[in-house]
C-alpha cells in the first residue's frame, strides 16, 4: 500500500503530465530537496521550468498564482507549513474566492470568471514543532463563500482527490494535509480488515465494523483524526461493547451533511472530532446543522477538539492539548 505522501506525490506527477497549464509554486520545492515534506519530490526534475521555487513571500506567491489562474493557468501553491495560511488570508478571502461570483454577474457562461487555484499546506501537531509550526488552522477558512476546503484522509485515494482538484476545479481550493498522515499507508478494504468501508460519492467515507450489532453513535472526523477515530472505534467495540459508525468527509467546506444525517437516523448520537481548537470549530457547524435537520431526534451531541490553547513544543504538553484515542473513547462512553 502506498503512503499518503506517495499518493499525493504521484498525483502531482500525473497532473503535471496530463495538463501543461499546471504549474507549482512554493518555498524550497526544487529537487533534490523536493519540499520540506517531500510532497513535490522529483517534480522539478521531471517537469523543468514548471516548478517555481519562490522567495519567502507567501502572500505574494498566492497573489501571483491567483493572477495566473485568472488568465488560464492551473497553479498549485505549496505553503511550507499550514500555520502560514494566515499570511495568505487576504489573497484568498478578499480576492480569489470573490472573483467568480462578483465578476460573473450578468454574464453568459462563457464570459464567467474562474480561479482554478490549489493551495496545499501541511497542518497539524504531534511532532513537537511548537506553537507556530503545529496548528490546524483550516477552521479559519471554513464558510468563506467561493472557497473550497479539502482534507484528505488515509482512505480511498487521497492522491485522486488532489488530482481531480487540480484538473477539474474552477474555484480556489485549500487542500489541507495533516503531517502525520504523510507516512501512513492508504488503507484499502483489505488493510481495514475489521471494517467495511463505503465510499459515498467521491469524497466521503463511511466506516463501520463488519457483522456488528447496530451502532448507537455516529462519529464524524476528518484528516488524521479520522485514523485516530478508527482506532477508538475498535477499542469501543472490543473493550466496551459500544458500536459506532464513522463518517469521514474530505470536503469540509462547503459541507454536505447528508451522510451524517443518514447515519444519525440510525444512531441519534453525534460525536465530532477535529485537531483544530474547540471553540467555533468545524464540529460546531456540523452539530448545529445536525440539530437543525434532526431536531429532537438528535439525542446527544459532543465535540472533541484541541484545547483552546496554542500548541506547546513539549511532548507531554502537546499530548495534553491535542485530542487522542483515549479521549475519543472516554467521550464516546459518556454519550451512550
Amino acid at each position: 500500500m502506498p503512503s499518503v505522501l506517495s499518493s499525493l506525490n504521484s498525483a502531482l506527477h500525473r497532473a503535471f503530465a496530463a495538463d501543461e497549464r499546471v504549474l507549482l509554486l512554493g518555498e524550497d520545492v526544487l529537487d533534490p530537496y523536493g519540499g520540506a515534506f517531500k510532497v513535490t519530490n522529483g517534480l522539478s526534475a521531471a517537469f523543468p521550468g514548471r516548478v517555481l521555487t519562490t522567495p519567502i513571500s507567501e502572500a505574494g506567491i498566492v497573489g501571483v498564482a491567483v493572477g495566473m489562474a485568472l488568465r488560464g493557468l492551473r497553479p498549485v501553491v505549496e505553503i511550507m507549513f499550514g500555520d502560514f495560511v494566515t499570511l495568505i488570508a487576504d489573497q484568498l478571502v478578499n480576492h480569489a474566492s470573490k472573483f467568480h461570483w462578483m465578476y460573473s454577474g450578468g454574464k453568459s457562461a462563457s464570459e464567467e470568471i474562474h480561479v482554478p487555484l490549489i493551495i496545499r499546506a501541511p497542518m497539524g501537531g504531534r511532532r513537537g514543532y511548537g506553537p507556530t509550526h503545529s496548528q490546524t488552522l483550516e477552521k479559519l477558512f471554513l464558510g468563506v463563500p467561493g472557497l473550497r476546503v479539502l482534507a484528505p484522509a488515509n482512505l480511498g485515494d487521497p492522491g485522486g482527490l488532489l488530482y481531480r482538484a487540480i484538473l477539474e476545479t474552477e474555484a480556489p481550493v485549500l487542500f489541507m494535509e495533516n503531517k502525520l498522515l504523510y507516512l501512513l499507508p492508504v488503507m484499502d478494504e483489505a488493510a481495514l480488515a475489521d471494517f467495511s468501508l463505503t465510499p459515498c460519492g467521491e469524497d466521503v467515507f463511511h466506516l463501520a465494523l463488519r457483522d456488528a450489532p447496530p451502532s448507537i453513535l455516529t462519529i464524524a472526523a476528518y484528516g488524521y483524526m479520522a485514523d485516530l477515530a478508527r482506532q477508538a472505534m475498535l477499542k469501543l467495540a472490543y473493550e466496551h461493547e459500544i458500536f459506532t459508525e464513522l463518517i469521514v468527509p474530505t470536503q469540509l467546506s462547503p459541507f454536505n451533511l447528508t451522510l451524517v444525517t443518514d447515519s444519525l437516523q440510525r444512531t441519534g448520537r453525534l460525536l465530532t472530532i477535529e485537531e483544530g481548537t474547540y471553540t467555533l470549530g468545524w464540529g460546531a457547524e456540523v452539530v448545529a446543522r445536525a440539530a437543525e435537520t434532526l431536531g429532537y431526534r438528535l439525542k446527544a451531541a459532543r465535540r472533541l477538539a484541541a484545547r483552546d490553547l496554542p500548541i506547546p513544543a513539549s511532548g507531554p504538553l502537546e499530548t495534553a492539548v491535542l485530542p487522542g484515542v483515549d479521549e475519543i473513547v472516554q467521550t464516546a462512553k459518556t454519550m451512550v
Partner: peptide
C-alpha cells in the same frame, strides 16, 4: 526548553524558536 522541560526558558511551551526572557523575544514565523 529544547527538551520540553518545566525549567526551560518558557517552561517547555515554546521550544527551540520561541523564547522569551527579560527583554529578549524570538518567534519562528518569518
Amino acid at each position: 526548553e529544547l527538551m520540553g522541560r518545566a525549567t526551560g526558558v518558557c517552561g517547555g511551551r515554546g521550544g527551540s524558536q520561541h523564547l522569551q526572557w527579560r527583554n529578549f523575544y524570538s518567534n519562528g514565523v518569518q
